[in-house]
Design a protein around this nucleic acid. Structure first.
Lengths: 248, 248
DNA sequence: CGGTCTGTTGAAGGATTTCAACACTCGTGG
DNA sequence: CCACGAGTGTTGAAATCCTTCAACAGACCG
């Protein structure tokens, strides 16, 4: 290969001032469950949120901690990871600006069931769970919007269960790459570049395999000119072929 | 083995009259998301539901059909199955009286993503999705309750993903038996009997394995006096040992 | 420029699937 | 009432996919 192998990813870092009070209102209106609200309501809701900045690889909260806050990604990417006794991790979701995370359910204990970690430098808005719940009662349209999003996540979670039980690792990886390209893909010189740091272990934890197997399959895809990949980055050259492989 | 092998399961059949208008109000108040409502509201909501009866093994709706109704189990058990191209099935959930099913999301297409099938004779209440949604807007407390239930299902769905990616088949089966015993278990002469017809294939589809492997593991458990089992039924003799095996 | 982290590759071993044959149970009809 | 057939469950053996262990190579960081 002629080209250099250094990362083509864009810089996600931002000074703390970039995660400032000024931007909150604008960002809040981007959040799917607030988009339908008028400006007055939005301003009122805005009061209840506070902003925080985290560097890449920082843990935002740990699995099994007491859950008190609901959070929203404003800038960067956040991953939700579930740890197991024997050191294996399961990567449950990779979140984008606009996505919420944290615990909901008041039924059951208020404990985070997964760890949230900053995949890049991130800016996060947070609200006390108790405040958010009274907000749901005050604005039914928000409650319905949140319900829709949660129902969609349940759908895709069940889809993932189907994949785990019926598809080979190669197909599962092809599938997750297509999904990630829809969420994080950005056309550039390398092809459809996934705009987030993504290691072999991240990939493996997403599809439930070992990093070695993930590596083998990625090498295979690269040999077939379906993707280009380097340390912590992946670009897709031939999305159609990938989608074909994912097809059951 | 000395004992007879005929099914110890109770009879789920009921005349259509048992699934009657009279019982609706009583049953509706059992549904988790209506329990907090006063009688007046409940009576109003009751108007919008209609009841239906299905025999065991009847399909209530098919995957990929247009989704128009939201349903609630009143009597019997319902299974949600996702079919795949190559003939494999994934058993997503086994529902009990009080559980709702059908599609929510208005975002995305209104298509059932799974097939619902009567596992026993069942009685089902149903409401038009559009009516249910306006009901959510009228009664925020219902919306919040439904959200909580959906969030819990998302939780357990993610738990299942963790199991599929990190546990052996034996541990997964031990785990699902413990779960089913909490939901359908009934103490009787055989031990803790799971009160629903349950084939090896059902079990296999729940934990993502082949019916042969499920059979081998069930035989193994039976040899160790952990369970008793026959055609379409399972009783747990030693739940503690089963829970130990499930432990990671 | 050396150390560390990430990714690659090979080979052996293990868990599970698949194919195949057989056994048991239950319902139905002779 | 019994016999038969279909559906369900069991078991063995070979094949497959994937994991694990191990060694090494390339990229990034100070």
């Amino acid at each position: 290969m002629a080209g250099r192998k250094t990362t083509p990813l864009k810089d996600f870092s931002l000074g703390t001032h970039r995660c400032s009070v000024d931007l909150r209102l604008e960002k809040l209106s981007m959040v799917p469950f607030f988009t339908d609200l008028d400006e007055g309501k939005l301003t009122a809701i805005n009061q209840q949120f506070s902003a925080a900045h985290h560097h890449a690889d920082e843990t935002i909260y740990h699995q099994d901690e007491r859950a008190t806050m609901l959070r929203v990604v404003v800038h960067g990417a956040v991953k939700l990871v579930r740890h197991t006794m024997d050191g294996k991790d399961v990567l449950l979701d990779m979140l984008q600006p606009g996505d919420y995370f944290g615990n909901f359910s008041t039924t059951g204990k208020a404990i985070y069931s997964e760890t949230a970690r900053a995949q890049t430098d991130v800016c996060i808005l947070s609200i006390r769970m108790s405040n958010f719940r009274s907000l749901l009662n005050d604005y039914p349209e928000v409650a319905v919007a949140v319900l829709d999003i949660t129902a969609d996540r349940l759908q895709s979670s069940r889809e993932k269960i189907r994949h785990l039980t019926t598809l080979t690792v190669k197909k599962r990886i092809a599938h997750i790459l297509v999904m990630l390209s829809e969420k994080f893909g950005e056309q550039n010189a390398y092809g459809l570049l996934l705009q987030l740091p993504l290691s072999r272990k991240d990939l493996a934890d997403m599809v439930g395999t070992s990093s070695e197997t993930a590596s083998r399959i990625m090498s295979d895809f690269q040999d077939q000119d379906i993707i280009k990949t380097g340390r912590q980055w992946v670009a897709i050259s031939d999305i159609n072929r990938l989608a074909d492989i994912a097809k059951e």
